[in-house]
Design a protein around this nucleic acid. Structure first.
Lengths: 220, 220
DNA sequence: AAAAAATTGTTGCCTGTGCAACAAAATATT
DNA sequence: AATATTTTGTTGCACAGGCAACAATTTTTT
């Protein structure tokens, strides 16, 4: 079963003609692996040389904190990339575990087959590497943006920082957020109830308006 | 004035023989720029195509938050790399500003001269790219680690997460931290006084011991 | 060595927000 | 359409930690 159509949607293959993806997969020695529900794709402390692309199923990245409490860091869905940073940093042990939450199929690609100028010197190879670097940089920039929210001192400031960013990205004072209240609270590292409470205060104060996932920031 | 010796210390040139650095600089069209104190090296919103290496002087990256408050994100010193993620992500506007805090010299290199397989196909070029990717990935992983601290619910948990990491990295239950109380508090996004208060509570509770920057974590 | 400056520690006060428990609204299921 | 389930909103309470103000210690400067 071929996943070319799915892969062509993944940012790693941006601007790579679908017809040439197959060749790249061979060239980079990509392999498909199946994981049962609850099985680990990457274990904590493991040395990671391959990155992965979720072809089907779902998963999550998680770790255990100081007090043994389990923390979900990200959710993985079809098309998500796994271990992008880890595979790019040579000889680095994984600080987190990746687990399938359903039966899943993952395409795994050795990172050193992406950087190595392949013998055939195929023209798409360079594009693949360029895309990989883009993904890598983007992941980093996203972390930065989350930190920007986390650093804000109050719940209100955290919310505003997040909303402003989404608004800016959609180029509109009226916009839709992709997160549920629960997920948004987790992202901002605040209580869900505190999030709801502050949102309604902000509405009362007239700085934002919203209904469900539709928001509008008032101009000041 | 040549900076080869300084450059050979920078992680970007790891495992590149100092004698070959000069050639790489030519090949990548590196240029040196001088900045006066307080001058901006990168302005907010600017499109960044080059990354930089601080050869002399000092600087800082900063941004303005929701309420116009200025926030220092990182401090730059001799050898620091500037705009690594930004240059790697094509067509991305800088979310932050970089400013010289003293008269400084910065070596600036167009990122596309690092990825492009150079015409001469010089063997070190590939190593340069590999190093760049390592730096990029490492920056991302560092952000992750900071987020791990920031996500912890209490001041004590934040501190422990940080200390455990330093301890692990130095492979020793007794270790030295590189941050002052002030910087540590900023890194963990807590009050300096709250940090001191909690540190002494933790000492009283017998889970850590410390004097100044020397720490020891008790085994449990 | 004295004085000044910077770093670190201490403590009382008070507010923001985590927590819990429940209500209301929206969505999914039968 | 009725029921069950999930998502979102509301509110009282308690306390962790921000803030401010000051003390103690270490480092730097003269």
């Amino acid at each position: 079963m071929s996943y070319i159509k799915e892969l062509s949607q993944v940012s790693l293959f941006t601007q790579v003609p679908p017809g040439e993806i197959q060749e790249l997969l061979l060239c980079t020695r990509a392999i498909c692996k199946n994981y049962k529900k609850d099985e680990f794709i990457i274990e904590e402390g493991e040395l990671v040389a391959n990155f992965g692309i979720m072809l089907s199923g779902a998963g999550r990245t998680m770790k255990w904190d100081a007090s043994g409490r389990q923390i979900i860091i990200t959710l993985l869905e079809k098309g998500s990339m796994i271990g992008v940073m880890l595979a790019a940093k040579e000889g680095h042990k994984s600080p987190l575990a990746v687990q399938a939450t359903e039966d899943s199929t993952v395409m795994e690609i050795p990172f050193n087959r992406v950087i190595a100028c392949c013998e055939k010197n195929c023209p798409r190879h360079e594009k693949l590497l360029r895309n990989y670097i883009n993904v890598l940089a983007e992941k980093g920039l996203e972390l930065h943006e989350r930190i920007n929210c986390l650093l804000e001192p109050t719940v209100r400031d955290k919310i505003m920082t997040y909303l402003r960013r989404v608004s800016r990205r959609q180029n509109n004072a009226t916009f839709t957020i992709p997160l549920s209240r629960n997920t948004m609270a987790e992202y901002l590292n605040i209580e869900r109830s505190a999030l709801s409470r502050e949102l309604s205060r902000m509405k009362k104060d007239g700085i934002i308006d919203y209904h469900r996932n539709s928001f509008r920031i008032a101009q000041g």
